Every structure is written in C-alpha cells, then in structure tokens.
Amino acid sequence: MRIRLVEITAANREAVRALRVHPAQERFVASVTKSLQDAAATPEAEPWYRAVQVGAEPVGFVMLSWNVPPGRPGILGPYFLWRLLVDRRYQGRGVGRAVLDRVVELVRADGGTELLTSHQPDEDGPGPFYRKYGFRPTGEIDNGEVVLRLPL
C-alpha cells in the first residue's frame, strides 16, 4: 500500500475530519476533530499530525508526540504514537501498517530509538494489531491504557 503523510490544510481539513472508524471502534480511537482539539490543548506534548492519503484521497489520520524533551510531566515520549485512525472504508487493506512503516522511518531519521504507544486493554481493540507489528508491553499503565514500546 502506497500512502503519503500530508499536512492538514484548509483545502483538505473537512475531508480529513469526515474520516470515521467502524462504530464498534469509536471507543478505542478519538475522531480527527477531537484529536486536533487535543493537539491544540496540549502543546507541551509537541503534537505532530498528518492526514494519510492514497493518491489524492484522505484515508486516515496519524498524530504523534514528536521528540518531547525529557521531564515533561504526564507526557510519554520522546516519540509517542498518540492517534492512528484508518477510515472504515480503507481498513483491512494495509493502510495502518503502511502508516506505521512511514512513521518508523521518520522517527528513525529524526534520531529516535523507540516508538511508544498505548491502548485500552480490551482484546477486541488495537492491541493485537500493534503486537503483530512488533510493539511489546512495557509493563506500564498510563491513564488506564497499556503502554507498548517498539525498539527502532
């Protein structure tokens, strides 16, 4: 799957905000609108976000905490995959894996040695996807979510 990570602009903002997961997944991942609000409300997390596109069409959204300096209370990092959303119409086609491949490439290029993420402990959530990719539990719990680490 060939994807591109592109900035969210006035030209694509509404199409990106319209992306939706399956209704059963809504409890596991916040909407793009909520994610953008969280990014604006938490500048100390160094939010970095992009629309995921296949061709010219937005198919997903990704947001990380990007190279957060050590010692910021309540912020996991320095690189933390905060949100990954693939529109329900594009799930099961390798988009999520392609996004992770690209994110890993970018984090490595920036000098990162690990990527963290977290998820709710429900097994019908995204945990199996992340573990299949290579993330492993750290043993930590953050706001009720299992923290995972991917060594780079």
Rank of each mutant, 00 (worst) to 15 (best):
T113I: 10
L64R: 08
A51I: 01
R149V: 13
Y49T: 09
T42Q: 15
G71C: 07
I8A: 02
Y79L: 00
R13M: 12
D87T: 00
V147Y: 00
S31R: 08
G134N: 06
F129C: 10
A45V: 06
I3N: 07
P151N: 07
R2Y: 13
R136C: 05
V32D: 03
H119I: 14
V52L: 00
T33N: 09
G74D: 00
G55A: 07
P151F: 02
T33Y: 02
P69W: 01
L115H: 03
G77L: 01
W82I: 05
Q120W: 12
A51P: 13
E114W: 06
Y130L: 12
E140S: 13
Q91D: 05
T42G: 12
R97Y: 03
V59Q: 04
I141G: 04
T138I: 06
P121Q: 02
R93F: 07
L152W: 02
A24F: 14
V52P: 02
A51T: 03
E46D: 13
E44C: 03
Y90P: 11
R83C: 10
N67F: 06
G144V: 03
R89D: 08
W66Y: 13
K34N: 13
R88Q: 11
L106N: 12
W82L: 10
V21M: 08
P128I: 11
Q37E: 13
R108H: 00
G94A: 07
E14Y: 12
L115K: 09
I75M: 04
S118D: 14
V95W: 01
V86C: 05
V21N: 11
V95M: 05
R13T: 09
A39S: 08
L148W: 06
V21I: 06
P43Q: 13
R20L: 05
E145Y: 06
V32W: 01
A109H: 10
G74N: 07
E114F: 12
L36I: 01
L84H: 03
L76T: 03
G139C: 08
L84V: 07
F80R: 07
L150I: 04
G94R: 07
T117Y: 12
V52D: 00
A39L: 08
R93C: 07
Q91Y: 01
G92L: 02
L19Q: 00
P47C: 03
L116V: 08
V62K: 10
V103L: 11
L81Y: 00
P58A: 00
A39F: 04
A40F: 00
S35V: 05
R136L: 13
M1S: 15
R2Q: 15
V147I: 09
D124R: 09
P70F: 09
D101G: 14
S65M: 05
